[in-house]
Simulated scan of single mutants.
Amino acid sequence: MKILPYHPSVLAQAQLVDLINYCQNTEAHLAIKMAEQADIFAIPQVYQQSGGNFWIAQDAQQIVGCIALLPLDAHTGVLKKFFTYPPYRGQPVRLGAQLFDQLLNFAQQHDFTRLVLDTPAAETRSHTFYEHHGFRRITPNELAVAYSYPDRHSWLYELQL
């Protein structure tokens, strides 16, 4: 298993779309179209050239997980596109924790002091992960930065670093 910064290729793009579609639509039944997620088709410009990053986890040559950090300002970043296929969740692989550690280390090395995220209210498995890792639920008023998120009965979380 390798966790690497995203590098554009047709194969990587296709595998990433498959992973996100599976997690959002097949598994969670959120009915989110890829057309609503233009960032996935411009990862270097949206994430990597803005001072953030986008990581993929590969098992052999297959993308099995991803996570991204999108800067909002000099000190606040948004945790985005955090997905793993089910066999890689929890013990013994703990891919979610590995991906989150990669993002957290990057955020701390780049002087971010706060992470925020949005997640659908129905995604209780995600809520458990975030709360276990120190995030606390906040209101939109507590967000205190301009961040356009797709409100699908979303819950907002923050982590002070």
Rank of each mutant, 00 (worst) to 15 (best):
N53I: 11
R94I: 00
P140V: 08
Q48D: 03
D151H: 02
I43E: 04
F135S: 02
V64N: 04
A107F: 05
A42T: 08
F106W: 12
L95W: 01
Q13S: 14
G65T: 04
T84W: 09
D73I: 06
A38I: 14
I67C: 08
I32F: 03
L99K: 00
G51S: 05
I40Q: 14
F82T: 15
Q48F: 05
N105H: 15
A68K: 04
P92W: 07
A14F: 11
Q61K: 03
L70V: 00
Q160T: 15
R152S: 01
E131G: 02
I43G: 06
K81W: 06
Q62T: 11
A60Y: 07
H127D: 01
L117M: 09
L69W: 07
Q24T: 03
H110L: 08
Y6Q: 00
D111H: 15
I32A: 11
Y157I: 10
L117W: 13
Q45A: 14
I56S: 03
E158F: 07
V78I: 13
N25T: 10
L143G: 07
F54H: 02
H110F: 11
Y47I: 08
D59K: 06
N105D: 11
K33D: 15
P44C: 05
A38R: 10
A146P: 09
L79S: 12
A31D: 14
M1P: 03
F100L: 12
Y130W: 10
Y149L: 02
H7T: 05
Q108W: 04
L70C: 00
Y22K: 04
F135V: 00
R114D: 03
T119E: 13
D111C: 13
I20F: 10
